[in-house]
Design a protein around this nucleic acid. Sequence first.
DNA 1: TCGCGATATGGAAACGTTACCACAGGGGGT
DNA 2: ACCCCCTGTGGTAACGTTTCCATATCGCGA
Lengths: 322, 322
Amino acid sequence: MATIKEVARLAGVSVSTVSRVINESGYVEKKTKQKVLSVMRDLRFTPSSVARGLVSGKTSTIGLLIPDVSNPFFAEVARGSEDAAIEAGFTVFLCNTDWKLEREEMYLQVLKNKSVEGIVFLGNRSDESTLLKSVGDIPCVFVDRRLSKQRNYIWVDHEYGARLATEKLISIGCKRIVHISGPENSNSAKLRERGFTKTVKEHGLDNWQVVQGDFSFAGGYDAAKILLSGDNPPDGVFAGNDMMAFGFIRAANELGIRIPDEVSIIGYDDIEMAKCVSPALTTIRQPAYQMGRTAFLSLKDFASSDVVEFQPELILRNSTKA
Amino acid sequence: MATIKEVARLAGVSVSTVSRVINESGYVEKKTKQKVLSVMRDLRFTPSSVARGLVSGKTSTIGLLIPDVSNPFFAEVARGSEDAAIEAGFTVFLCNTDWKLEREEMYLQVLKNKSVEGIVFLGNRSDESTLLKSVGDIPCVFVDRRLSKQRNYIWVDHEYGARLATEKLISIGCKRIVHISGPENSNSAKLRERGFTKTVKEHGLDNWQVVQGDFSFAGGYDAAKILLSGDNPPDGVFAGNDMMAFGFIRAANELGIRIPDEVSIIGYDDIEMAKCVSPALTTIRQPAYQMGRTAFLSLKDFASSDVVEFQPELILRNSTKA
DNA sequence: TCGCGATATGGAAACGTTACCACAGGGGGT
DNA sequence: ACCCCCTGTGGTAACGTTTCCATATCGCGA
């Protein structure tokens, strides 16, 4: 790789001048600039980000701390962040944590000594004070987690989303409503459950239930098998995410129980497959891509506002009665 | 962030000695080493990768050039690469190209001046000589693409995979077999099609057909609607990937055509959802995670072997007759 | 004519490491 | 007693930039 020195030598100017041309800073005579530019082109020169990062501290790099890209929801958020990042001339380090604390801490360390200029956290659950201590003064943004002020976050109102789902089930006449919840350690799962519980209580329902799930296909499937083959099976189900809803649908199909005639089901997330299952899944949409975009953006200018709240949306398809 | 100088000062030794401790190189007295280590711990010092990268050229970073992480297959490969990378102390830059050439070239430029130590290419289709020129001497590995020697690649035998699928359909007695192909510009799609064509010919079938698809759910759905409502509908279908198979299944369901009784369908990829649809999809499995892992690994030691070939595998589920 | 601000350029320190060389003391083989 | 090698340590150039300061020329108003 050519260096700035060679460019300077070939253009017959000093390193400083080349630097000024690159950064469009300071004074450079038009003619000189043209000459330098032409040499740069000939040499296919681009400045080393590493050297640049060392002196200026600006690496044009961020870290994306994510539980698992294989999860379609996270993948979508990741796309959003990456697209926004590249538009701003930034590159992103992909860091899968697998929900593991030690892996997260390890990555935090790595990102820190790679001098990233910011970190986007997804599905983060580690202890707040420890966390803040380890990130130091690196700008952070949390998706789906509220810290006690001082940091910015991207938020979608899970309680409201759950309310949308639950009220839909109620409005189409469901009387025996079940919520298949997410895992206990998930913050958003807890909020969705709370939204569900609040809503059914407000509407004075007395025949409702929450069963524990784990956000997996198998979790939804197993729950469905138990629920649907028991006596007093539900006629409306709100699953904590789409995968569990898929599991539920599969189980219902196997048991010969028709959706939505005998039981309506609503998911959460609106991942791509939701359109594709049969029947197509009614679900609560989170604007994953937009959230990712916004996360990156709010990393760059705290000015704008350090809290961005998104509203989830009910997407009507064929797994609920009309 | 503390620097090596501060560590040196506090430990009462020179910078060189600290560096030797860090890198476990050269001679350092045990006592000195302990002292330095303890200061490092107190200061929470970790060496700056940026400075290190500048002097040694080793950035412990690779680039992952991928069409789209939202695609489950690519996401899985990405996980494989990332896991292998972090085990080796490497970090990966996530680069979504959206199949766009200009975006790929832009990223190549960026990766180059960030001094990545290697690049993993997925779904790459750009012109070979241009490509080789722009990567220069950065180690590369291509997944699913063969270049005319000189570079290493990870390969899975698509023709063989297609053969597995086709022969399965033949062996269960299908007489009118259709292949829904991938898009024309996809190399692997072409190979799968060739595998299919070869196999049906070898078996002397005369009632077979290839229809053009695009790897999307909608593509499979549309193809199915046309095929299944025409006269002489197929009794065996091999879809170029799982998403199209899902589309096919959905269309069949809507038309009241039973799978696998009236028509058997086989997909390709074995993404997670394949287990989850109804009926569960028989498909050809590509070891995506392993491929990703291997890709990273072969970046590091060319020694081992610069061509790794994986065999696809038939995964029997319920979308094919017994 | 003098001086000052605007323009244009170069020199060199600094960023935080690594790598190489220099130096010194000690011990063992001849 | 001498030499050499092993051990332990420090000094400093180099990596490729940016940034700040110095210098030089020019034009123009006082």
